[in-house]
Design a protein around this nucleic acid. Structure first.
Lengths: 209, 209, 209, 209
DNA sequence: TATGAATGAGAATTCATTCAT
DNA sequence: GATGAATGAATTCTCATTCAT
């Protein structure tokens, strides 16, 4: 978001610096929250000076906002892939698996969002109301259709989605707690988690004879 | 805690002010996180001057710590009540229900912990390692016994606990998101959530065949 | 200096508390200087509450002032004892010895004064100008008389007094340095110091041929 | 020291501001002691804003430490110049003279150290133990050699050094007292002091017989 | 573009002193 | 007399942001 003419396309260096800043910001914001993060720390992590960082983004808030905006799409991708034409249980299991993998592979992104939502989404409230609600409602309709058709057990689709989010993101957002309880070193808990969740949702969603 | 000699019991005023401070601190810390909260705001909410607040607690960190410590017990109470001698499914459904009620009735407490864990538990790490792990391991043993005895479906007990935490606390921690998606005004979603979770875990945990 | 009627003599309890406060204040002021000392610390050392301390002395400054005033007499005692009718060299050697003993036995008092003088005597300037100058001038006259009479070597009497102060008080005021250089544990350096100073001043003041 | 990379040499402005700060700090610290000094006062004296001062030094303590460290060398210079190959009495008289001149020309430096030592050297203790002790021991060895060789009177070399420090620094550290006694206006007392000390040490150190 | 320098608005904490009982 | 409670005025330090080059 360089101040440079909005008309001209960003140069390579602009793109690179912007990327570096956002990468650093992800690190810092996800670990410290918005208020806890400092531009100094982000700038240092991005290997540039603080004023230079502010050349690319007009303010701390702008960095944060750009980060959230850009990641929202990626974040919702697994849900988008839910295919109305696929086999319901297979689709749902795949969705759960994708979400769990995201928690494993992109825990910082998960924590970034969690931080923001937890504090009342003061800096991203709109997006949720818009993009997110729309997507969720659309997918909830699919789930409802499946459930109406008896292809999955009759459940409230919104709460089903919430529960999937909660159970999968938990492994990223509450990572220290999970590790503290399971034993700090183990990293293999994602495999167990996957198996547990697959079983829980399979049993829970399979329509009864 | 007030500087008063550890030997002398707290006066009425001490108790009242201490309570007022902790109540205000719960409000502020749960909404803004540790770094985002300011003593000014807490003092204002508690109707005290800032130095007066610091007369009762030596530092911002001390307020936070006292709050976490004091709430940890309450927070773990629902799990403590899990009775090894009860009927497994009944016990688990009751546990889930209690946790969900806590999310409804004490969302700030939930967010207080979530904020802390999310940022790596820098100020409460020890307690987790100690108190929490011990309790969880103890209760996990019960679950395992039930599952070994075929009284519930065979599941990983730790991940079962994690999933219960995640799904219930979600309604407190991600409240704005939930409301944003379900429609801001409704408060009745806890009823639907309870029903959904009851069904999910009942189906998911009932032993087959 | 209780606020109580100046007319009534202090009660026993008043005297005791006042003493305790001054004793504690000597400890703290001599170690930390006026600005570095806190009423809290003094009160704690005196085993009373801060408001109670301020019942006996109207302010921090008042405690400090009372302390300095009260100690000034003691402090100047060795010089007062310099006897114009004694044997000059014997008298001077005795004076040096007394001063050195005061540094050994009352280092806190020495440091209290040193702190004050070092910072420009902002709180005791008057006393110096009055009491001290008068006494010194009086004794300097004696020294001058001795020197004029050829009973000691011809020296500037004021600078002689300064040098005696400096060399003896050094062992109290710069104690950490002295210990650091001589080796921390030794306490016997006062004996060596006494011998050294005796020799220096004896040789330096014995009238020649 | 400015936050600039340790690798890059300081810019002109950095040098200038750093100098200005240290000059101001010398003024303030020497007059008020560490605790009595405020960043406000130092910043004002250096004609900087307080945050700008803290841009060059990370903390009040850092300013103080930099000042002490930088001045320690200068401060010990006179002693370093004591030449083992020179004529003992001449060397010592020259040393005394140099020390006295330092008290006259750099009284703030003297008071800076005195303040620190007086309060137990809490912020410079190490340096004393290291640099200072080593230098003093080395020079004391020279004095002992001279005294063993009968070239000066037999005296304890450490206490000789202490006495020289004490008598010369006295004119800086206790300046107000000296002025108060001698009469405030006179500045010529350094001349008298020099003469007195020369005589005292010459008589005191000339080997007998 | 880039960065050294600067700063105003906080933020936590300290402390002498006062108040009320 | 004694003390728990309260506070205003500092005081150190932080940090997002701006300035100047």
């Amino acid at each position: 978001m360089a101040k440079a003419n909005a008309t001209r396309p960003p140069t390579r260096i602009q793109r690179e610096k912007t990327e570096a800043i956002l990468a650093a910001a992800l690190d810092v914001f996800s670990a410290q929250g918005f208020r806890g993060a400092t531009l100094d720390e982000i700038a240092r992590a991005a290997q540039l000076s603080k004023p230079n960082l502010l050349y690319y983004f007009p303010s701390k808030e702008a960095v944060h906002h750009a980060l959230l905006t850009r990641l929202l799409d990626t974040w919702l991708d697994p849900l988008r892939q839910l295919d109305p034409d696929g086999d319901p249980l297979t689709e749902l299991r795949a969705y759960i698996q994708r979400k769990l993998e995201m928690s494993r592979d992109y825990p910082r992104e998960s924590r970034l969002f969690a931080n923001e939502i937890l504090q009342g989404a003061p800096r991203i409230g709109d997006q949720i109301q818009d993009t997110l609600k729309q997507l969720v409602d659309e997918k909830a309709a699919i789930l409802r259709a499946w459930s109406d058709a008896g292809r999955i057990a009759p459940v409230d689709p919104h709460h089903l989605i919430f529960s999937i989010w909660a159970t999968t993101q938990h492994y990223a957002d509450f990572e220290v707690q999970v590790r503290g309880i399971l034993g700090a070193s183990e990293d293999g808990y994602f495999h167990d988690a996957a198996q547990f969740l697959a079983q829980l949702y399979t049993s829970g969603l399979t329509p009864k004879g």
